[in-house]
Design a protein around this nucleic acid. Structure first.
Length: 487
DNA sequence: CATAATGG
């Protein structure tokens, strides 16, 4: 893909490009993948230069003291607990202490470990001390959720940095830095090198930085693995939250998420025992489609009383293939909403009352964000619009504006990042070979709150758990951060 | 050979 895209872009021989790329790699400069418009293109740029700049800025700051005065936690913690009515665990308190004494810090942990309440405590203390805090996240939904959870306004990183498409960059930079004492970034695992470069450029040197996220989730699709490198470098203080509060410790979901992370096959509960984690074995993809539909439409509703239209989410490693999100959307729509009273066909999809749908772009006017799930309420022919219900709120989509709406009976694991569902069904077959990886399966499995069902080939699950096809790391951020070559 | 995000 690299070479074909580069070839199309540069109109040169593929062999030449391969040579150029390997030479760049030899020299310690690498290839940077970036996007222009909707096309992913490859540019030969100094990716490592960007990583070095990030490392230098972070190391300079990490060496300094935070801009807020020392905080007496023996007083501050009881004060917060009195207001929230929540008591923090010892590991959460330690995380609060570490973050409040560090100018640059990382807070990481999986779902249910209390990242949110720990962050809330940190923010309450700092805001009460008059510290100017800014909050940001890489996606619109994550920013919206952060706003709801903290009661403070959070923006997408792009909006915070005031993206300026005309000049192809951000208005916020060294010359026009953000006005804050601390910038908190949530869902940092989704931030890639170019965005982190822009972000660190725009943070004033005196200000602190806190990166929150789950390292075990999928890395950014764009270049780099920024959060993993920040943690792996050993040069930045890391608060790791591991104790799981949300689900009982004996939850098979939690146990198996951990097993997947450590390269072990997920283990179903002993036969006959109640569980929240199941594996339905299949021999080939076509049988998989049949069994998956059976699981979603019959077995889960009957055994767990869950509604397949609302509670069950199918999460696929990819869009393509019979067990891809695209095909399963058609199949599930056919079975779950067989004879709707009305139908509108647009952009290759059918929309009917009862359909589960997803918005795929942030719409700040209608307050609907990329990844938000809704249900088609009705089709208004007079108005020429589809009316979609998002969590009790009616949103009107004129027929001509349905291009950002897609059926959501099935979606990709990538798109599910940052969402949770009562039940999750994940097809895993060797057809998904290119995508099979630990963090992909981990991310999918940890989206399920009450029930997870893998419909797959044992061989494919094995490939994923063993790490799939490992790509050589092209990035050097970790090395830049670890090295003593500080400015 | 596949995954995804941003905004006016």
């Amino acid at each position: 893909m690299l070479t074909t895209l580069a070839q199309r872009l540069l109109e040169v021989d593929a062999g030449l490009i391969e040579t150029a790329i390997s030479e760049e790699l030899q020299r310690g400069e690498a290839v940077l993948a970036d996007t222009v418009g909707s096309e992913t293109c490859i540019f030969l740029k100094g990716l490592h230069g960007a990583e070095r700049a990030i490392a230098e800025r972070l190391l300079t700051r990490a060496g300094g003291a935070p801009p807020w005065p020392a905080i007496d936690l023996d007083k501050a913690l009881p004060w917060v607990e009195g207001r929230t009515g929540k008591t923090l665990s010892p590991s959460q308190r330690e995380a609060v202490r570490l973050v409040l004494t560090s100018k640059v810090a990382v807070m990481t942990g999986g779902p249910g470990v209390g990242k949110t309440s720990t962050l809330d405590t940190i923010l309450r203390i700092l805001v009460a001390k008059g510290v100017r805090v800014l909050l940001a996240a890489p996606t619109g939904r994550a920013a919206k959720r952060m706003t709801e959870q903290t009661g403070l306004e959070a923006k997408t990183i792009h909006r915070l940095l005031e993206i300026d498409p005309k000049h192809g960059g951000f208005s916020r930079n060294e010359e026009n830095p953000l006005d804050c004492d601390l910038l908190v970034v949530d869902e940092t695992s989704m931030v890639d090198v170019p965005l982190m470069n822009a972000l660190t450029r725009a943070v004033p040197e005196e200000a602190g930085l806190l990166f929150v996220g789950d390292v075990d989730q999928l890395p950014s699709v764009g270049p780099g693995q920024v959060l993993a490198d920040l943690i792996g470098s050993g040069s930045i203080p890391v608060a790791r939250l591991t104790e799981v509060f949300r689900q009982a410790a004996e939850s098979r979901i939690v146990v198996n998420a951990h097993r997947i992370n450590t390269g072990q096959m997920p283990e179903p509960a002993p036969k006959g025992e109640d569980s929240d984690f199941y594996v339905v074995e299949i021999s080939d993809p076509d049988e998989g489609v049949f069994k998956l539909i059976e699981v979603v439409t019959n077995r889960i509703p009957r055994r767990f009383g869950l509604n397949p239209l609302k509670d069950v989410q199918v999460l696929c490693p990819m869009n393509r293939g019979v067990l891809g999100a695209r095909n399963l959307n058609h199949e599930l729509q056919r079975v779950l909403n067989p004879s709707p009273p009305a139908t509108v066909e647009r952009f290759g999809w059918r929309f009917s009352p009862g359909d589960r749908v997803m918005e795929t772009q942030n719409d700040y006017d209608r307050e609907v964000f990329n990844g938000d799930l809704g249900t088609v309420d009705r089709i208004d022919d007079d108005e020429g619009a589809v009316i979609v219900n998002f969590e009790g709120r009616e949103v009107v989509y004129p027929f001509g504006e349905l291009d950002t709406l897609v059926p959501a009976f099935a979606t990709t694991i990538h798109k599910s990042q940052g969402s949770e569902y009562p039940a999750v069904v994940i097809p895993v077959v060797t057809q998904h070979y290119q995508m099979l990886a630990r963090n992909l399966l981990y991310t999918g499995v940890t989206r399920g709150k009450r029930l997870v069902v893998l419909v797959g080939q044992k061989k494919a699950i094995g490939i994923a758990v063993r790490g799939g096809q490992m790509k050589p790391p092209w990035t050097k951020l970790r090395e830049w951060l670890s090295s003593t070559r500080q400015v």
